[in-house]
């Protein structure tokens, strides 16, 4: 092998990361080539110096600083609304599901009311979307008029729970 090829392999040879075949070739070449041997010795000295590199010390309060910063960030509670809502859902699965069902029923009652007022096309659309076609038929309301009352109370509860959620979110922001 020529010198430049050998010199390209010296680094890996020094780290014993060359196949034994190449290793023998390099050793043979080094025996006969003063320039490459000098390069190898220089490289070996450099790596020795790098290996013995003294580590620097660090400030005593390093750990405290890190913990302090973590606590600061936790205090700011840098979460987005979606993150907060998802954490709310994970922590209070039952309550959130109940709230969602109640809100859904509330939406149905809104549709009913809108339909009864006969004011908006939107009301009619919502009515058909949520109520008559899938869940609650007109006849059902006619048969059990108190069903309307339940739906309306569900609407009230859903509005109340919505207010509670908003308040809790505001509280989180303030803290």
């Amino acid at each position: 092998m020529e010198c430049h090829k050998i010199q390209r392999e010296l680094s890996a040879y020094l780290d014993q990361e060359v196949p034994s075949f190449t290793k023998k070739k390099i050793e043979k070449h080094l025996d006969g080539c003063y320039e490459c041997r000098l390069k190898y010795e220089e490289l070996s000295a450099l790596v020795g110096n790098l290996n013995n590199y003294q580590s620097i010390g660090l400030s005593n309060d390093f750990t405290d600083k890190v913990i302090c910063k973590i606590e600061e960030e936790n205090a700011i509670y840098n979460l987005s609304l979606e993150d907060w809502l998802s954490s709310l859902f994970v922590n209070n699965k039952l309550i959130t599901i109940a709230m969602l069902i109640i809100s859904f029923l509330g939406a149905i009652s809104l549709a009913f009311i809108a339909n009864e007022l006969q004011l908006f096309t939107l009301g009619t659309i919502l009515y058909h979307l949520f109520s008559s076609s899938y869940f609650v038929s007109d006849k059902l309301i006619q048969l059990y008029p108190e069903l309307m009352l339940y739906l309306q109370s569900a609407l009230v509860v859903s509005i109340l729970s919505f207010i509670v959620v908003i308040q809790r979110f505001k509280k989180r922001d303030d803290s």
Partner: peptide, 20 residues
């Protein structure tokens, strides 16, 4: 956080040195 403190103490010198 105490467990994390132990982890920091274990690795802080290496971490600072590699960054340095």
């Amino acid at each position: 956080k105490d467990a994390f403190r132990i982890l920091i103490n274990k690795y802080k010198t290496d971490a600072v040195n590699v960054a340095y």
